[in-house]
Each structure stands twice: as C-alpha cells, then as structure tokens.
Amino acid sequence: MTNNLIIGQYVPGHSLIHRLDPRAKLLIVFAYVLIVFLANNVVTYTVLSLFTFVFAALSRIPLSFIMRGLKPILWVVLFTMLLHLFMTKEGDVVYRLGTFSIYEGGIRQGIFISLRFLLLVLMTTMLTLTTTPIEVTDGVESLLGPLKKMRVPVHELALMMAISLRFIPTLMEETEKIMKAQAARGVDFSGGRFSERVKAIVSLLVPLFISSFKRADELATAMEARGYRGGEGRTKFRQLVWKPLDTSFLVATALLAALLFLLRS
C-alpha cells in the first residue's frame, strides 16, 4: 500500500547530499521553492533545471528509483500542461481545430508550468530521500529555536514529532493485526455495501484508537519514570554540526537565485 509512494521514504547512503546538515537542506529547499518562481524564460528554466539535476545526481540515488516515485504525479503534470495549452491565448496560432486553437504562448506556458511543478516535487523529494525523518525533526527544532523566546513550545513539538515517527511502524503492525483479527470474524475489508464498509472501518478504528490511548498513557508513565520533565535543563544527544560543505551549498543556492534574477526577462 505504501510501496509506490516514495515521498517521505528515506534511502540510506553516504553521498554529499546525505551528509549535508539537515538545516542546510531545509533552508535550500525552502529557498528553492521561492527561487523557482524567478524562472520565466528558456534560459532561466535551463539554468534552474541544470542546478536541480546536478543536485539530484549528487545524491547518488538511482534515477529509476526517483522516476518511479514521480510517476504518481505525472498525470497532474499532464493535466496542468493541457490546461495551459488550451487556456492561454498569447502569440501566434500554431494549430486550429474547429473552435479550439492552440497558441504558441500556450505551448510555452504549458511546458514551463509543468516543468516548474516537476522541479519543485523533485527537489522536495530529494530532501526526504536523503534525510531521515528524525534528522528533519532535529533540523526543524534547531531552525525554530529562536521562537522559544516567544514561548513557542519548539522542544515539545519536536519531541512529539520524533515520538510519532518512532511509532509509525508499530501502529502499522497493529493495524494489520487488527484487520486480520476482524477478517477472521467475517469482516470484508475489500468490498461490500456502504453500510458494511462503514462497519468494517469502525471495527478497525475503535480498537486502534483504544490501543493508541493505552500506549500513549503507558509511554507517558515510562517517560516520567525515566526522569522526563520538559525541555528545561535537558541536554541533547543528537547534535547537528554545520560544516563548510553546508555553507558552500547555501552559497550555491544564493548564486542560483542571483543568476536567475539577472537572466529573467
């Protein structure tokens, strides 16, 4: 069920991109999301694509794996392309069929917008493919650190995120177990009338909620027993180390922004 979806799936490795500080990767991706909108002509899109492909190549993740992950969004890209193809009425008419006309501007817009969308997804996927969820959490906690002064519970939020990540596999296992137990009592999870389907879902969700509450309660007790009393006075085992490599990647991203700004029309 989760096998086709690569968004959020980490691929272990030791490439340059894997070794980047998660804060650097978060900042780059965040900046990239804004930078993408600077591109508006053939030259700028070429530069942007080059940068993105080099970044992806550096991750050493097999192209086939990345492509497989992009497949599910291809129809969205195609739809965007068609939409622009038919709706944009700029430049010369290239093709006419009855009341439909395709303009040169439409083709250009269609290609640009779908390319932009693809590049965005590719870049954000790179973040999750090369960074473990817990590293992302550490990065977010560190970047949001200054907000602690404004009484934003950054530490608590990060801990919540980390614990959720820790329990995802446990809950998936639990879900499967409950589904099997209910299937043994004649529940059909694969079909049936609407009312039967509702009943099936209820027979799965109620036990799942109850056991999750119990887990949460026991976990809270265990955490208290292990001396947890909030973020105050706590040291951290997971440490992020900012390296020259991280700075150089940030600089490269800044250069990209500058270049696009100069070359855009």
């Binding site: 639990e174 137990a181 209910q182 043994a184 004649g186 059909d188 209820v202 036990p207």
Partner: peptide, 23 residues
Amino acid sequence: PKQLKPLRKKVGIVFQFPEHQLF
C-alpha cells in the same frame, strides 16, 4: 479473496491478545 470468506466461519482463529479486537 471473495471466495475465502466462507472458510472464516469454518475455522475460527483466536489471535494473541484477542481483547485488542473488541470494539
């Protein structure tokens, strides 16, 4: 899978910690 359902009535399984299936 559809053809398998009648079997579930013939063979009942009590899983480990069966109380987790109550709802």
